[in-house]
């Protein structure tokens, strides 16, 4: 049998993504981003994102089909992020996917954005391991998930109790006078001679007492405040702020907690694979530290290339493809956009 040809649509935040895959082969990953429109506000403005999705949708679908060298009528199924995410933004993608599925008379799969971040790795490294811990870290999420079979669902092990990891990067970048989104700029500042040990910033939820209740949870709010406090005190005393050192020390604190807890989660489940996804997975220090610590612990790390870690349509198509290959029943045309779709739900029925 020919592998299914899947078109996936992603609009949960500020990227309009349309990806096309055949089986586990990536054919196209077209993206239109409204990030520049949000940059001056220091965060994503939902209505601005929704308007941009509407304008970008048809051109992005066309671009994806051209790149893949297919006609929309060739598609076997349409997959779309139906949650979680910004309600108004999700709705544009879901309505577009329905318009396609309806016009083409093809099945529709409303899928979970977080599960799609996991499934995207099939495009880079083939079938997912039979059991793995997935750590998703981005501006919107910071979760540890246990994944046995992605098409059956994932089990949440822990998540942030306040800010997402990527959010902490954005906020600290702002404190340091670096642009939005903060992740890449902090990474670069740290690499440009930053001393990771210059200051020791707090590691959230790692004390013995916290571990009892929050073994696999994260907290980055205290860290963010500690950095802001440190910087502000320096400025108040009329001293220079060593941006590179602060960036490196902050990044070290984030990566330390993330990798420690991820490895602990693998050990807890007896899994020998750690998969990292989400925009923060592009962080060079996180990749290096995960490699180093996991190899010492006998755990294999899988991280898709940076372009697949951030939000995109390919990840949605990848998950759709796994669901089709597993023979899962599609979603109804009445599929809602569910901004708070639970992580345990991979497919919206």
């Amino acid at each position: 049998m020919n592998e299914p040809l899947i078109l996936g649509i992603e609009t949960s935040c500020d990227e309009t993504g349309v990806g096309i895959v055949r089986g586990q082969t990536l054919l196209a990953d077209a993206i239109a981003s409204s990030v520049e429109e949000h940059a001056r506000f220091g965060g994503v403005v939902p209505e601005v994102a929704s308007r941009a999705h509407l304008e970008a949708m048809v051109p992005t679908i066309r671009r994806a089909c051209e790149t893949a060298g297919i006609k929309p009528t060739d598609v076997d199924a349409v997959a779309v992020t139906s949650g979680p995410g910004l309600a108004g933004a999700l709705l544009v993608g879901v309505a577009a996917a329905k318009g396609l599925a309806l016009s083409l008379d093809k099945p529709l799969y409303g899928v979970n954005h977080l599960a799609a971040h996991v499934a995207v790795d099939t495009l880079e490294h083939g079938d997912l391991p039979k059991g793995c811990v997935a750590m998703l870290v981005s501006g919107g999420h910071s979760s540890l998930l246990a994944v046995e079979d992605i098409t059956d669902g994932v089990q949440p092990m822990g998540s942030t109790i306040d800010d997402a990891a990527g959010e902490a990067f954005d906020k600290v970048a702002r404190v340091l006078g670096l642009p939005f989104p903060g992740g890449p700029y902090i990474d670069k500042a740290a690499r440009d001679g930053g001393d990771r040990l210059y200051v020791t910033f707090p590691r959230g939820l790692t004390s013995q007492r916290d571990l009892e209740r929050h073994r696999f949870d994260f907290s980055f709010s205290g860290l963010k405040t500690a950095v802001a406090r440190w910087v502000e005190a320096r400025r108040r005393d009329g001293e220079d702020v060593p941006v590179n050192h602060v960036a490196a020390a902050f990044q070290e604190a984030v990566c330390d907690v993330l990798t420690r807890k991820a490895i602990d989660a693998c050990k807890d489940r007896g899994f020998e694979h750690l998969l990292i996804g989400g925009g923060v997975a592009a962080n060079s220090r996180l990749r290096a530290m995960a490699e180093e610590r996991c190899s010492a612990a006998g755990i294999a790390v899988r991280v898709p290339r940076p372009g697949l870690c951030t939000d995109n349509g390919a990840m949605v198509a990848a998950l759709g493809s796994e669901l089709v290959r597993a023979g899962k029943a599609p979603s109804p045309l009445g599929l809602p956009a569910d901004s708070s779709m639970p992580i345990t739900e991979v497919l919206n029925k």
Partner: peptide
């Protein structure tokens, strides 16, 4: 806006394909 966009994006994608 939210409801309005549902109609517009549906019309545009259907018409395009």
């Amino acid at each position: 806006f939210t409801g309005l966009r549902v109609g517009l994006v549906t019309a545009r994608t259907m018409a395009d394909v």
